[in-house]
Nucleic acid binder design. Structure first.
Lengths: 277, 277
DNA sequence: CTAATAGTGTCTGTAAGACACTATTGC
DNA sequence: GCAATAGTGTCTTACAGACACTATTAG
């Protein structure tokens, strides 16, 4: 427990000059997912300035470091993610439309050369949102929209198929692919599918979330029984929806999210045989 | 697809001056785990300089940004993690003792104030290693050692119990707790337990890995059957160990890691009932 | 009316966990 | 010899998926 006397903290700060170091920028990017018309959508902005001007990108931007030069308060990473979502889409943060989104860290992307301007480390986040209004472009964004994930032609290797009209900037195709895989996995063992619904939802609505994220049809009867059998997944409100299914059928009952943080037993995807090896 | 003409890339670079921005530093830290004497150990270094001089910390350090000031090549995040492991422990990288460790990104920690010197964003990594030699302190480290995780008195909330002698610097107790939880979860649905063993191992050795990481005893017979029944988890070498169990018993057969990347069905922890809510 | 849907019942195959048992080893 | 261990057999229970069926709704 003998401190090395070569340095102490005041010594470091007295001798430290940021101009001695090559600069690194830190950004946050957000993969914000929602369900619209039964299909999985991601929030994208069209870039208004170089690099990749005109291409589509995940909403994001620089983290406020805090310090004397820019005067802004230092912000935590999740706060930066929410701020960027709000700034570039016109959606209001706390208490507003963004108040009910689930947000978690996805991963950090820092390969040299991923941004042509300088060394940029991006901390990607993943958000699950209930149906939100159309965004309004703001900040550096020339446009902003909920885009069907299907239309982006993502490949397993983190790229986009040739011929896809909406091209993604930077390594955002890779980040989005990773976010989708995380979302698919999280639906298996957490109750986060409910984060895509509002406060109250029916079991068929919940099933539609699973089908949209997994891209597979599920057996309605077995799904219904499974959801109710997992302790804490959903709890009944006692009420009944005021409409039946889209093309007929009885009025489903209403539920809200339960208090479980993990699903046990998990709700596994039907066809995972291919991914195992 | 009309680029906003206000900026182009050369414009940005011509007007960009890092001195206009508050500096941010990016570091990598590594939670390196191994099994020694049937107990889970983590690699720690004792800090030789402020801040937190004399306290223990995860091995880690600044990422080489690349650029004219320091002259170093820009390095990718995983490469930085391996380099820091090598520098601070004397273990040799590629091809050497570190060649067979599993390394993955754990998460990024960037709360303002987590480093008293300046704004520091740390990209934490998680490593699973087979039994490695004792490390030799290097770089800024006054000491380096494999430390039993049990001796660190970690609490669920990411702190350390009062009275624990080895105190962890920065938010490293939180990072280590997160790494342990990730490790426990990964053993359930991936074959990564084999990364803690050498190239060949017996089923009882593999069971000892699970018991050390999960902190629970497993039923030997059922574990044996389960491991062999999961396709691709292990494959037989045909050989037999040259010794029986520590206190007698037949000589177990030898296996090596199979080609599965996911375990299906998963090998679930026995007592997860408490964690669900 | 017709077709689709919500919700429940039932059956079957698979797998996990408890227990039992044998054969083989270290000490 | 004794105690511990590797590996296998068997039984019970739980659960996922397939199928069937009824009641209720939209159009």
């Amino acid at each position: 427990m003998t401190p090395d006397p070569r340095h102490d903290e005041s010594d470091f700060l007295a001798n430290y000059d940021p101009r001695d170091y090559d600069p690194v920028a830190v950004t946050v990017d957000v993969v914000a997912l929602t369900i619209r018309d039964g299909a999985l959508h991601v929030l994208l902005v069209r870039r208004g300035s170089a690099p990749y001007a005109g291409m589509w990108a995940l909403p994001g931007g620089f983290v406020q470091a805090g310090g004397p030069l820019q005067g802004a308060e230092a912000e935590d990473l999740p706060d930066a993610a929410v701020r960027e979502l709000a700034e570039e889409t016109g959606l209001s943060a706390k208490g507003g439309a963004l108040g009910r989104v689930h947000l978690e860290q996805l991963g950090t992307y820092g390969s040299p050369g991923r941004d042509p301007r300088m060394r940029v480390i991006s901390v990607a986040h993943l958000a699950f949102a209930p149906e939100l209004p159309d965004p309004e472009a703001g900040g550096d964004a020339a446009d902003a929209a909920w885009v069907p994930v299907e239309a982006l032609g993502l490949t397993e290797s983190g790229g986009q198929r040739p011929g896809t009209t909406r091209r993604l900037a930077f390594d955002h195709a890779r980040i989005l692919s990773d976010g989708l895989e995380r979302a698919r996995a999280k639906l298996e063992y957490t109750p986060l599918a409910a984060a895509f619904c509002g406060g109250e939802f029916t079991i068929p609505e919940l099933r539609a979330v699973y089908e949209a994220v997994w891209g597979e049809e599920l057996h309605a009867g077995n799904f219904h029984r499974k959801v109710l059998s997992v302790p804490g997944f959903v709890e009944s409100t006692g009420a009944t929806s005021d409409r039946g299914g889209r093309r007929g059928g009885p009025r489903p009952r209403l539920y809200r999210a339960g208090d479980a943080r993990l699903l046990h037993p998990a709700l596994l995807r039907p066809s995972r045989e291919e991914e195992i090896r």
